[in-house]
């Protein structure tokens, strides 16, 4: 069982990490940077306005970037029959999802935090805001990863599942966005703590919610 999970994690990392076949990391990061780059063009070179709104823009861009890889998270493995074969070997959907959540977060959480450095420079964020944004992303991206997996599993097999997944993630991610971006406005730790709390709740329910969705899709 443990050996199987390690094999699973290796496969997931190979598929999802930078340069992986399901190219989880590259495209969302480029998309994230593109949004951060476009924003100053759109609102003009007012440094004060940019640094005041920049943190929020980074959060919105991060949320939108998290939507991009959703259709490749669960559905291909169902279509190829992997979930059936794992189930026969006693590897439950919950374990598979828990492992995939780790791989998915590694493929977009840390790269997003790295990409926030040039994004912060483009938006003229000061050092304190950048630190809050980075800490907020550290607390919030695991929640985004968990949410993405839940929605990807729920919409699998539906016509237009990818577009629907995007639409479903946005309202569900509002608490993360409110607390994460909100921690910038008051400059307090409470926002970060609440972001982390929302993430933990999502991480805890994701394997069970996604696992149940995958089993239901089998019928």
């Amino acid at each position: 069982m443990i050996g199987g999970l390690i094999a699973l994690l290796r496969r997931d990392l190979g598929l999802l990490l930078l340069g992986g076949r399901r190219g989880g990391a590259t495209l969302p990061i480029l998309f994230f940077l593109a949004v951060a780059m476009l924003f100053p063009f759109a609102v003009g070179p007012d440094a004060g306005l940019l640094s005041r709104t920049g943190g929020g823009v980074i959060w919105v861009a991060a949320l939108l970037a998290a939507i991009l890889p959703l259709d490749r998270l669960v559905e291909p493995d169902i279509e190829l029959g992997f979930f059936d074969q794992w189930a026969l070997r006693g590897i439950s959907e919950e374990w598979v999802i828990a492992v995939r959540m780790i791989a998915h977060w590694l493929s977009f959480g840390p790269p997003l935090m790295l990409a926030s450095l040039p994004a912060a420079a483009l938006l003229g964020l000061d050092e304190a805001s950048l630190r809050t944004v980075e800490l907020g992303l550290l607390a919030g991206t695991p929640g985004l990863a968990a949410l993405g997996i839940i929605v990807a599993a729920l919409t699998t097999g539906l016509r237009g599942g990818a577009a629907l997944a995007g639409l479903l993630v946005i309202p569900l991610a509002v608490p993360l966005l409110v607390f994460g971006a909100g921690s910038l406005a008051v400059g307090g730790e409470s926002g970060l703590a609440l972001t982390g709390a929302v993430s933990l709740v999502l991480l805890a329910i994701a394997p069970f919610a996604a696992g149940a969705a995958i089993r239901a899709a089998r019928g």
Binding site: R11, L15, R21, E79, L80, G81, F82, D84, Q85, L88, R89, G90
Partner: peptide, 16 residues
Amino acid sequence: GTVGLIDERHALDAHM
């Protein structure tokens, strides 16, 4: 006893 299954979905990564 454990079950081995062959159906039309072979669970082999297409690009590998």
